[in-house]
Design a protein around this nucleic acid. Structure first.
Lengths: 129, 129
DNA sequence: GATAGACCTTCCAGTCATGGGAAGGTCAAG
DNA sequence: CTTGACCTTCCCATGACTGGAAGGTCTATC
């Protein structure tokens, strides 16, 4: 399986596969005689794992930890849960922050006529708040 | 007023003031004989405006539009409202995305014993979903 | 007037995860 | 044997910053 096929099978772009290898997130792939990367089902599974973790918003650093726990059949689930929970806390904090922004802006927009007149509470707020 | 004082008065770091100037978000500041930037109350107000807009999550590009509308006393509030509403929609979309991630992870973590045993629904999900 | 240290200047590099593209090697089908 | 679809490495760009080096300037004190 070359990199293009591994990409299709895993849903990770070829660019990203090379990048993950370059930063050490995955082990360097085997090479064919002509220096092409060669992937087996095991490597493709790892790439899929990475893609799913990215879809859940984990950083590459967190994924590194999750991967090594995944590879370790003796890992305590406690460690995985801790990473997940800290990530959830992180997500929640960012959600709350953005929610506050959206609420403020919605309120300002609600008070804005939104017509041809220049009076605008949104700009007034940005200028003087 | 030199850049350090303008920074304190506006809450925008000196690095950022220079950056905003370099990308053309604000007009190049006047210079003293010794080539120091010189700011008046008007420029400081613009910087404050920018800081508040950033706090509401507007991108630099959006802030550029807001600034030029702010400078234009004849602007129709419609245009400002449109920018604000499109930004709110953007925020809402990102919030929904992160909320979905957080919900999924919370559910997975809830099902994870989080003890010394290796069985972990979080890793199982990442590996097989 | 010398010196210290707190400013200022420009420029260059790094962050994070990713995409784009150039220059060149390899492979399979026609 | 050519074509075109792969692959390789390399560097560059993104957005919105932060950090630092090298060097000029200002102000206060000795």
């Amino acid at each position: 399986m070359n990199i293009g096929q591994a990409s299709k099978a895993s849903g990770v772009s070829t660019k990203m596969i090379r990048y993950y290898e370059s930063i050490g997130l995955v082990r360097p792939a085997d090479r064919t005689d002509s220096n092409y990367r060669s992937f087996g089902p095991c490597e493709v599974n790892e790439l899929r794992f990475i893609r799913r973790a990215r879809n859940l918003g984990f950083s590459v650093e967190e994924i590194g930890k999750l991967l090594s726990l995944w590879r370790d059949r003796e890992r305590p689930s406690r460690e995985v849960k801790a990473i997940a929970q800290s990530h959830v806390a992180d997500l929640d904090a960012r959600i709350a922050e953005m929610q506050a922004m959206a609420d403020t802006l919605r309120e300002l927009a609600r008070c804005c006529a939104g017509d041809e007149r220049p009076d605008c509470p949104i700009l007034a707020d940005l200028a003087e708040a």
